[in-house]
């Protein structure tokens, strides 16, 4: 069996396992490449028709191309699409121009998702996170319990040895399921190519720049790139020396800031 088929089988096994355990389950679809890949895998797992809702958290600040893409494929795939918004915060004028970016994310993303989960009573969510995205994800589990405050206790994680997934959980608000945790950014693009998956045009180079990850328009920066199709992206990533989150250099900056603050006794 080739590598991509193995990765695909593993993901499909996790998706089916999750659905068998939790009937109140939904897929979180950001319209980005990872969750769009996951959407595709869910279709494959259930022979073309996803038997649970697909949630899109809409901050109102996504790229116009993302809304077009979402609506087009929601219709084409016959998805049961739930668009989650924190209406109160949006009506209150929350946005990147008001208050801090953290408040904006917290209200328009985190609280919008909390409200959506509460409204529909979901017990499990399928998410397209990947282990190679970020150092903190190294300890993430495929089945990852969260409390009502969305906290993830990274020091008390269920053991998942080899492929023994711990899908049972107790006393938690909901379980997050990560069927593509084992895939890398490069795997995703190779899989996109093999399956000929539709992918947002924002990922392809225009005037020397492309987005390596997409989200809200005011907070996303493109990276310099000439890769204008999937093959060129695969080539670029295979030879990349910078991380996927290069546009999001926050972690490194925080470490530097801490060192500077410590030298003046502020920590």
């Amino acid at each position: 069996m080739d590598q991509l088929t193995m990765l695909e089988n593993k993901s499909i096994f996790i998706i089916r396992e999750a659905y068998a355990k939790y009937k109140d389950i939904a897929l979180l679809w950001s319209v980005g490449k990872d969750s769009t890949t996951l959407l595709w895998l869910c279709q494959k797992a259930f022979f073309g028709k996803i038997p649970f809702p697909v949630i899109h958290i809409d901050t109102g600040y996504k790229f116009p191309q993302m809304y077009e893409f979402r609506d087009h494929y929601a219709k084409e795939y016959g998805l049961n699409l739930i668009v989650g918004r924190n209406k109160e915060a949006i009506d209150g004028g929350m946005g990147p121009g008001k208050g801090s970016k953290l408040d904006c994310c917290n209200e328009l993303k985190t609280n919008a998702l909390k409200q959506t989960i509460a409204k529909y009573g979901f017990k499990a969510l399928l998410l397209g996170i990947r282990r190679d995205e970020h150092g903190i994800r190294a300890k993430e589990r495929v089945f990852s319990p969260r409390d009502e405050n969305f906290r993830w206790n990274y020091e008390d994680q269920p053991a998942e040895l080899w492929d023994q997934y711990k899908s049972e959980s107790e006393g938690e608000d909901h379980v997050r399921v990560h069927p593509i945790l084992h895939m890398t950014e490069l795997d995703i693009w190779k899989y996109v190519k093999r399956e000929n998956l539709p992918i947002s045009e924002l990922y392809f180079s225009k005037e020397g720049k492309r987005f390596r990850s997409i989200g809200c328009e005011p907070c996303c920066g493109p990276v310099p790139s000439t890769a204008s199709n999937v093959d060129e992206i695969i080539d670029e990533i295979a030879n990349a020396t910078t991380s996927e989150r290069a546009g999001r250099a926050q972690d490194k900056e925080d470490a530097y800031t801490m060192q500077k603050l410590r030298s003046l006794g502020y920590m």
Binding site: S100, K101, D254
Partner: peptide
Amino acid sequence: YFPSYTHMA
């Protein structure tokens, strides 16, 4: 987090 100019309201 470390408040910077981007957080100044």
